[in-house]
Design a protein around this nucleic acid. Structure first.
Lengths: 196, 196
DNA sequence: CTTGTTTCAGAACAATCGTTCTGTTTCAAT
DNA sequence: ATTGAAACAGAACGATTGTTCTGAAACAAG
C-alpha cells in the first residue's frame, strides 16, 4: 500500500556526509541537504529527526566508507611502519586528487567546529581517536623488534595520532601536497629511528 | 565637545578575541560581543564595520598577545631544540591551566571553520603558518651542527609545523595533558636524532 | 549653563535558519 | 479500478542572525 521509498537511511547519510564534510556543520543548511540528497525534508526528519542527528549518523558512515578502507591495513596483525606510511600517503594522495586546499578529515573538522558545544560529537571524536591510537600502536609493536616496550609504544602511538591530526588540519589550507608528503616521510623516518 | 570613548579599537579587539577564541566565529553572535566587550553595536560597527572585519582584526591581536610572547624565543638567533620544546610546553601548560578540553589555537580553529569559505582568513592563516615555519627552521638550524643541510632543515620545519598543528587540534578534545606532553617530548627526541 | 558633537542603549529590519505542517501524488494490495 | 498508507513538494512558522536606525544621554569647549 505505501509508496516505495526513493532512498535508504544509509544512502541518505552517505550523501549528507559529502556535504557536511566539505562545508562543515554550521555552513550546511537544511536546503543544501535536501538539494544534495534529493530527499525531501519530510524524509530526512522521518529517518533521523533533525540536522544534528543526521550529522551524528555521518560519523558512522565516515568510519565505514573512509576510515576503515584506509586504515584497516594498519590495524591488521603483522602491520608495521610501511602500513602507517601507506596510510599517510593514501590520505595525502586522496586530498591531492580532490584538489587542495581539501576537505581534510571529517572527524577532525567536527572536533574543532562542533565538539566544544556538543557532548555527543565529543564522544564520537574520542572513539575515533582511540581507534587510531590502537591501530598505530599495533603497527608500531611489529616494528619494535623482539621485546617491545609497551610504554614506549603507547607514547609513539600518541605522537603518531598528533601528527596525523596535524596533517589533515594543514591539508585544509595547503596549496600543494609536497610539503605534507615530505613531512610524512620525515616523520616515518623519525619513528623508525625511535624504534631501533 | 564629544563624549569620551569607553574603549579603543585595541581593547575592543582584545575582548572580542577572547570570545571568538572560545566559541568560534559562527557560534559567536553580535549580542555575545556586545555583552563581552561592553561596547555598543554602534561602537563596534564604527570601529570595524562588521563582525567579519572584527574577526580579521583579532588575528593581529592574537599574534601580538599570544603567538609572539610564546614563540619569540624560537625565532631568536641562536635558538635551538630547547626553545622548540619550551614552546610546546608553554602552550600545553597554558591549555592545562585554562582547563581541558581547551580552546586550542585561535588560528588553527579559524583555519578549519572559516578559511574554506573566506579568502581573507585563508591569507591570515597562511601568514601565521609561514611565521611558524621560519621560526622552526631558525631553531633547527642551530641544532644541526656546523654544516646544516638547508633542504633537510626546511623539511623538518614543515614536520614540526604539522606536529604543532596537531597538538592544538587535539587539545580541543583531550581530557588530560599527559598524552600531549609525552608526545611533544617524543617528538623533540625524534627531531634530535634526525639532526645528528 | 549652553551648545554641539559623539557615544550609547535598544528598537527595528530584512534575511536566513531549523523545524513543522498541509495538501497532493504515488504505489501496492485488494 | 479502488483504496489507503506513506512519501513527496513546498508553504508557513517562530526563532535567531547581522546590520541599520532612532532618540536619549554624556561630556568638553565656549
Amino acid at each position: 500500500m505505501p509508496r516505495t521509498k526513493s532512498h535508504t537511511p544509509h544512502s541518505l547519510a552517505d550523501d549528507a556526509l559529502a556535504v557536511f564534510w566539505n562545508a562543515g556543520f554550521g555552513a550546511t543548511s537544511m536546503d543544501d541537504l535536501v538539494r544534495a540528497t534529493g530527499v525531501s525534508r519530510h524524509g530526512i526528519y522521518g529517518d533521523f529527526g533533525g540536522k544534528r542527528a543526521l550529522f551524528l549518523a555521518c560519523f558512522d558512515r565516515y568510519q565505514d566508507l573512509v576510515v576503515t578502507p584506509a586504515f584497516a591495513a594498519v590495524e591488521r596483525p603483522g602491520a608495521g611502519l610501511a602500513e602507517i606510511s601507506a596510510y599517510f600517503e593514501h590520505q595525502i594522495g586522496a586530498a591531492e586528487a580532490l584538489g587542495l586546499p581539501g576537505p581534510g578529515c571529517f572527524v577532525a573538522n567536527a572536533a574543532t567546529e562542533v565538539a566544544p558545544h556538543d557532548a555527543g560529537v565529543r564522544e564520537k571524536v574520542a572513539q575515533h581517536n582511540d581507534r587510531l591510537r590502537r591501530g598505530f600502536a599495533n603497527a608500531l609493536r611489529a616494528g619494535a623488534g623482539p621485546a617491545p616496550d609497551d610504554r614506549m609504544i603507547a607514547r609513539l602511538a600518541e605522537t603518531a595520532l598528533v601528527f596525523a591530526t596535524g596533517l589533515w588540519s594543514l591539508s585544509r589550507v595547503a596549496d600543494t601536497a609536497g610539503g605534507l608528503r615530505q613531512a610524512a616521510a620525515d616523520f616515518i623516518a623519525a619513528l623508525e629511528r625511535m624504534l631501533s
